[in-house]
Amino acid sequence: MAAEGALDPIHQFEVHPIVDLHVGGMDLSFTNVSLYMVATTAVVALFLILSTGGRGLVPSRWQSMAEMSYEFSASMLRSSAGAEGMRFFPLVFSLFMFILVANMIGMFPYFYTVTSQLIVTFAFSMLVILTVVIAGIRQHGMRFFKLFVPDGVPMAILPLVSAIEVISFISRPVSLSVRLFANMLAGHITLKVFAAFIAALSALGVVGILGAILPLIMTIAITALEFLVAGLQAYVFAVLTCLYLNDALHPSH
């Protein structure tokens, strides 16, 4: 049955407990997913801390990479949310680096893709939206809700426009989390399906091996595409976070 399990495209998303942990009736077991979460944090933190240990005025290659990731995130946040948005920089930088590294770790064969768990991406998007709401209300009080009342809209259609604004605001965490989750999940399933074709076809003898060339090419192409998607989705998540934070800082349209 092992062969069948290996060909099953959903198999890669299964959750196995490694260390059982129950607190107050809740199952907080340390699973393979938890392991890759911790690994992601370790990779990001070690990369950024070790590479900047020298504090070189002239950066080494590793330090240069850390500086590039820093400046990339910083310019992304500054261009969307302005200079006062920079106080959210640790959050944006953490999110961007965590999602990017989690996606990239997922590209290794047999490694788990943490961002293919809907609850993980949903937790990230709720973190962003709650940060937006709390920061917005703390800074602007009730004026934060002007976000839902655009200026210069006639009174007659204002309720309709406000309703649309509210719905679009509520749909933000959903779209933010589903976009990342669905991209990672679908990409990995597609990859696995095409890879499984290679295995299935090449079991059929010479003709099958020749026929397996096509899915092999597809697998290679999709792997390249998945690397692109892994980087792009981390970028998209971070950019949207910056745009939503901009709403918290400047709620009036």
């Binding site: 979460m37 992601t40 801390i49 989750f181």
Partner: peptide
């Protein structure tokens, strides 16, 4: 289907909070 399996959610959320919290703190 594993990504929708609610039984694993507490574990995911807890360990995500731990690992991402640690990363955020270090940041």
């Amino acid at each position: 289907f594993p990504p929708f399996d609610a039984a694993a959610f507490p574990s995911h959320l807890f360990w995500l909070a731990v690992s991402f919290g640690l990363l955020y703190f270090l940041m």
